[in-house]
Design a protein around this nucleic acid. Structure first.
Lengths: 208, 208
DNA sequence: ACCTGAACACCGTTCAAGT
DNA sequence: ACCTGAACACCGTTCAAGT
């Protein structure tokens, strides 16, 4: 599936169509939560949005493009949250960084946990390589940058440490997100900062 | 979707039908690799397997049940590999455990990396809660057991440590599996044992 | 006991016609 | 400029008929 098929067909120029697009997005999320990913049909979304099926195809070349836009929104807000946290953490000690980054990852994904779960399920049908690469590059760059600025540690290879930290954070938080187990979430919330800190401490040579 | 719809409709009693079921499985994987998950249709699988569409429905109540069986096979072999590794690691030091467990997770998932990737993509359409719970329980139990037997460490709370280690291993290996980036894979292969060991060392109080 | 394949319901997508 | 909805191609599933 070519990536061009996943971009919006046209940007709404008039306020009427901006409202229509917003209604389509909202309806898609509602159908997703109410009926599940397999019952997310174009007709159902159109009906719920109060428009005709054809209208959807004025703004999205196909159904996948609509789903892609939902995923793009969600991942974009995660990357932005990480970037802002890293900006604020500049120059702080690594222990603070571990704590705060774990918090940001978990919060971003548990805030609307059902929506996030559903959106990840949709992603299976999409060609998400480009989008995921872009998002993880943003996250990795932000994390590597903040690690390099740490007040109390210098890393043998800050790129490796940043890469590894983002893999651990993404993987562990996504793993608990996929499960519907509050107990597992609490263990991760408590232990993941310790695990990150232990790794970073070991990957760094403390400054004199 | 009720879980009963994901079990095999009947077990093949005669050798002819055992061959048919195997042909359906093989064909499904071939179609998956060749045409991708969205083009995995029952007709396509039937044609490739050299049978009629109706034949598929003799052994699987619906298409999802067939996909579920594929996922079940794949995850079962991962859990088995982890259990066997843990059995062999009983009584060894924690550093050896970290190294070996990372190796097992990565090997199990990169051996047939394309197939594994495709099978995970399919999982989105399935009701996998029960299966995933069973698999992760097997993995967590095996890991907790082997940690408790470590020669050189005693854990403040071995259940917590086992839980956390399995989340990190599952998350990080799956995260690199999803990406098509050999560089990321190599970093994880080299650094994940260090991260696991650092966490375990910190979670344990060394014996005198 | 196992297999076939036409038939049916339903979904994604289009496009001529409307406002 | 935007929206409608009947029409078409295609997919999952069934079941009467075959061997």
């Amino acid at each position: 599936m070519p990536s061009s098929s996943q971009e919006a067909r046209k940007t709404p120029k008039q306020s009427r169509s901006a409202v229509t697009v917003e209604a389509i997005f909202t309806a898609a999320i509602q159908v997703l939560l109410r009926d599940g990913p397999r019952r997310l049909t174009t007709t159902r979304v159109a009906t719920r949005a109060g428009v005709s099926v054809g209208t959807i195809y004025q703004y999205f070349p196909n159904k996948l493009a609509l789903l892609y836009a939902l995923l793009e929104r969600h991942l974009g807000s995660l990357a932005k949250a990480v970037e802002e946290a890293c900006e604020a953490l500049r120059g702080r000690p690594v222990l603070e960084m571990s704590d705060e980054l774990v918090r940001v990852f978990l919060d971003a994904r548990t805030a609307e946990i059902e929506t996030a779960r559903m959106i990840y399920l949709l992603a299976a049908d999409l060609d998400t390589d480009g989008l995921l690469t872009a998002i993880r590059d943003r996250i990795r760059t932000a994390i590597t940058g903040v690690l390099a600025s740490a007040a109390d540690a210098r890393f043998a290879c800050v790129d490796t440490a940043g890469h590894m930290l983002s893999v651990i954070l993404s993987g562990a938080t996504r793993t608990v997100l996929e499960r519907d187990d509050p107990g597992a979430l609490e263990i991760v919330r408590a232990q993941l900062p310790l695990a990150c800190a232990a790794y970073l401490t070991q990957a760094a040579q403390s400054k004199p």
